[in-house]
Simulated assay, not measured.
Amino acid sequence: MDIKHSVYIALFAAITAALGIFPPINIAAIGVPITAQSLAVMLAGGILGAKRGALSVVLFLVLVAVGLPLLSGGRGGFGVFVGASGGFLISWIVGAYVTGHIVEKAWNKLNVVYAFASAAIGGIVIVYAIGIPWVAVAAEISFNKAFVGSMAYVPGDLIKAVIATAIILVVKKSYPIISKSED
């Protein structure tokens, strides 16, 4: 990996941290806040591709684990990974990878449909598939209660997927970071 790719990875870790400036909206039912940072997961994968997108999230989460208060609301430290949010945080790595993988595979025909599908599948479906069971265990509630409580997040996440779609397509057209050779 060259310097340019390392800079992109660090840049997207910084973007993820910057999105933590927006205050979290707490939902008491499951104890996981609504944040703008999940948008960064969609953007990292969709703009950097699978490998670099996932690595940017790994870098961000390592910084959080060592105690930097980079999560929305100024949270940080290893303890956030064992709480109700832990599964969602870990799922961001897989979500960015899946988003990037779909974008890479559809690169030559990438349009609104493919870009939105990549953001929604990686940034919502995958993230929820890992995060919801974790919430059920960590919060000691039933899977059904965790699932129903998590549905409050879907409208906001769909808006984030629309925003990510627009940004992914603009970046692809104006400054593509994913090259055609990565298909």
Results as ranks from 00 to 15, higher is better:
residue 67 G to E: 13
residue 121 I to F: 13
residue 32 V to H: 03
residue 133 P to Q: 10
residue 66 V to H: 10
residue 77 G to S: 04
residue 39 L to T: 06
residue 58 V to H: 05
residue 87 G to F: 00
residue 70 L to H: 02
residue 60 F to C: 13
residue 1 M to Y: 15
residue 122 G to Q: 02
residue 177 I to K: 02
residue 147 F to I: 14
residue 155 P to V: 07
residue 114 Y to M: 13
residue 142 S to K: 14
residue 55 L to W: 00
residue 104 E to R: 00
residue 165 T to N: 14
residue 6 S to F: 12
residue 33 P to C: 06
residue 74 G to L: 13
residue 14 A to L: 13
residue 54 A to I: 15
residue 88 F to R: 03
residue 106 A to R: 08
residue 118 S to R: 03
residue 46 G to W: 01
residue 29 A to Q: 12
residue 70 L to P: 00
residue 24 P to K: 03
residue 100 G to S: 04
residue 172 K to S: 12
residue 180 K to L: 12
residue 88 F to T: 05
residue 8 Y to R: 06
residue 59 L to Y: 04
residue 18 A to P: 03
residue 142 S to I: 12
residue 26 N to C: 11
residue 24 P to Y: 02
residue 135 V to D: 03
residue 54 A to G: 10
residue 2 D to P: 14
residue 66 V to F: 11
residue 166 A to D: 14
residue 118 S to D: 08
residue 132 I to G: 02
residue 32 V to K: 03
residue 30 I to D: 01
residue 35 T to G: 15
residue 183 D to R: 14
residue 39 L to S: 02
residue 94 V to E: 02
residue 150 S to A: 15
residue 98 V to R: 00
residue 50 A to W: 02
residue 51 K to W: 04
residue 27 I to E: 02
residue 62 V to N: 14
residue 176 P to D: 10
residue 66 V to S: 09
residue 34 I to G: 10
